[in-house]
Design a protein around this nucleic acid. Structure first.
Lengths: 229, 229
DNA sequence: GTTAATAGTGAACATATGTGCACTATAAGC
DNA sequence: GCTTATAGTGCACATATGTTCACTATTAAC
């Protein structure tokens, strides 16, 4: 053998990155994505990740089982990749939301709207998070919990900017953010199970989530954290 | 054949019920319970219900796979039985709580304490509910959702008795009850994943849940439902 | 005591699964 | 253009699975 090519799957160091890394890598990334998409698709509806088989995923991806190992060491590694991808879409949403902040009028209602619409549009990713947060293998489950904690902290930081929430110390802000995250996850689960064409049901879920957030914020406006500790 | 015996597994009609239905039925109920327990045990930790195999459950129950069919038509039916059993323990808790009502002082803190202790003591049932509520087969999942809705309505009825919550109409009471249930389920999931010997962590989870409920009730004390609708 | 019902057994089957290995085709590197 | 690396193939294997069927032992019914 002459020389080992750079074994990393990343485009080699200083290359312009967007310029073609060759037909080869592009094809590889395509079937890698096919595998991830296959898993997400199979996960829709009844199935849970731990009940998916490697062969099944490979078949839906249109690839022979052995080819799976060219991309992942096993289903667990694929699961971790799904965690990454799913939270990337969540963080994308937050980034967009922060870059074009909503006017304070009806802020809660419109935030709920934005979030739930996004969850519907990225149904598979949100479904994966919702399911595997509680039932996945411990590596996947812990990875999701970690990301959710991180997201909760970010939300707490955002909340700190509200003048009405001056009564909160850091711990209590996270406590409140956790409550908000729980409520939104609950609404997300309802949305994911709802009939997408039943506008009335979707409306009811949106309204429910909005009221719940308003109730939380109403309580928060009266909250006084213990100054010590 | 002479005469078919009453084919139902129930003791025949007007018998005193508590009197021995015979050695036979007792043995049958024993292995039926062994199957249910086997499934719950396997469900602890990593696994999800949909990843359990019939053979696996039979093996842990100490019975040959074919014997499984003497009790359930398949794993789905066993799952439905687990739903029944799990919610029976939940309702038992509520019944006990109502029969010996707590004094109003520190009511929230002590209710949280009671609930979370119960969840720890009946770890496997609560874990099953928490997991399969979101990831189970649709029959199991829908059965759990239905029971949770029912439980939410019961809680809403209990809440209606509080003088501080006069500002609520029925819909909004259920909205608030849903928020409480979500928060308690969230805390339950944390408890189920926590190290049972780590008293500090358990204490933190209890304290978190208590604060979240207090925040909700603080908001509720200011709430005014729209009188119309 | 004889007979019928049945909970649990053991073996068999067709099929599905994870993983290994030799292979082929093709793009990348020189 | 020749050579090397490698994404994907095809086949094999041991093992696990759901389900069936004839059977056995024990209880219930008369």
């Amino acid at each position: 053998m002459r020389l080992k090519r750079n074994s990393s799957s990343e485009p080699s160091d200083s290359a312009p990155a967007s310029l073609g890394t060759g037909v080869r890598d592009e094809r590889k990334q395509r079937t890698r994505k096919a595998l991830l998409d296959a898993a997400l698709t199979l996960l829709d509806g009844e199935r849970s990740f731990s009940s998916l088989s490697l062969r099944e995923v490979a078949k839906v991806a249109g690839v022979v089982p052995a080819a799976f190992y060219r991309h992942f060491t096993g289903m667990d590694e694929l699961g971790m990749s799904l965690v990454d991808d799913s939270f990337r879409t969540l963080h994308d949403m937050m980034r967009v939301a922060r870059s074009a902040p909503l006017p304070p009028a009806n802020l809660i209602a419109r935030s709920v709207e934005t979030f739930l619409r996004y969850a519907q549009a990225h149904r598979l990713h949100f479904q994966f998070i919702a399911k595997e947060r509680v039932s996945g293998s411990s590596s996947v489950r812990l990875a999701i919990r970690k990301e959710l904690r991180l997201w909760t902290s970010e939300l707490a930081a955002d909340l700190a900017a509200f003048p009405k929430l001056k009564g909160f110390n850091g711990d209590d802000l996270r406590m409140m953010a956790g409550l908000v995250v729980n409520a939104m996850m609950g609404a997300t689960e309802l949305i994911l199970d709802a009939d997408l064409n039943d506008a009335a049901e979707l409306g009811r879920i949106h309204a429910l989530a909005q009221k719940q957030l308003m109730l939380i914020f109403l309580g928060a406006s009266q909250w006084k954290s213990k100054p010590a500790q």
